[in-house]
Write a protein that binds this DNA or RNA. Sequence first.
DNA 1: CCAATTGTTCAATAACCTTTGAACTAAGGA
DNA 2: TCCTTAGTTCAAAGGTTATTGAACAATTGG
Lengths: 118, 118
Amino acid sequence: MTLPHPNTDQISLPIVLGVLGDPTRLAIVRYLASKEGVPLNCSQFLDLGSKTNLSYHLAKLREAGVTRAEVVGTNRMITLRRADLDARFPGLLDSVIAAAGDDPALPAVGGHDLEIPA
Amino acid sequence: MTLPHPNTDQISLPIVLGVLGDPTRLAIVRYLASKEGVPLNCSQFLDLGSKTNLSYHLAKLREAGVTRAEVVGTNRMITLRRADLDARFPGLLDSVIAAAGDDPALPAVGGHDLEIPA
DNA sequence: CCAATTGTTCAATAACCTTTGAACTAAGGA
DNA sequence: TCCTTAGTTCAAAGGTTATTGAACAATTGG
């Protein structure tokens, strides 16, 4: 029922960096960060690829320890593992998200607002 | 004579992250950071792989904009492009290097001291 | 029960990555 | 000039990654 996740001390720096070195996954992380606290299901990311392809990328992010996926009915609710990543690699996630926020070459989740509302 | 490098505004976040998502290249960057200011030639990294293999990894780092290589006689002097990376992605390099410094699973350049001497 | 919704798994494909040894170029010293 | 040193380039092998469509499982609503 519950999907496999590494625990915090098993999260590996090269694996995290490798996983973030893909524009689609970077866009997923950026969008999750912009909606932090709000669990999102996979369908929210369909702008970034096919259903099958997103399943693949979301599994990579989860297995690397970047995201957490909780099974709720037929949905998988996805959240960023910010506290775990901050504990393991202080400042890394923030600088990646800040850098990604500036990059017009990265894909974005269309029509949605990437800014956190006031 | 001079090797091709991207200029600062051409450095791409996903490419940099992807390039750093390899233990050998992360070890190279960590070692360069520990000897910052001192240009190193390729032979300094032979602990991390064969000559051919290092040529490959060092080219990846250079093409991504992470390092600079200057031809001096038969040597290529390698330096970290810290100022350029800091300008483009503030805080990223520091957090990666700090995280890599904690990781006992990463390869290291053998026999040498990774700490900056007092 | 039936159908729709959500997401996974599988097999296939094409592309790319890492590593290797052999052959090569270019500069420097004896 | 000849040899050594430093590093690149090439081709090949083997592995991994990204993407796709078809088929599947599981939950929920009517």
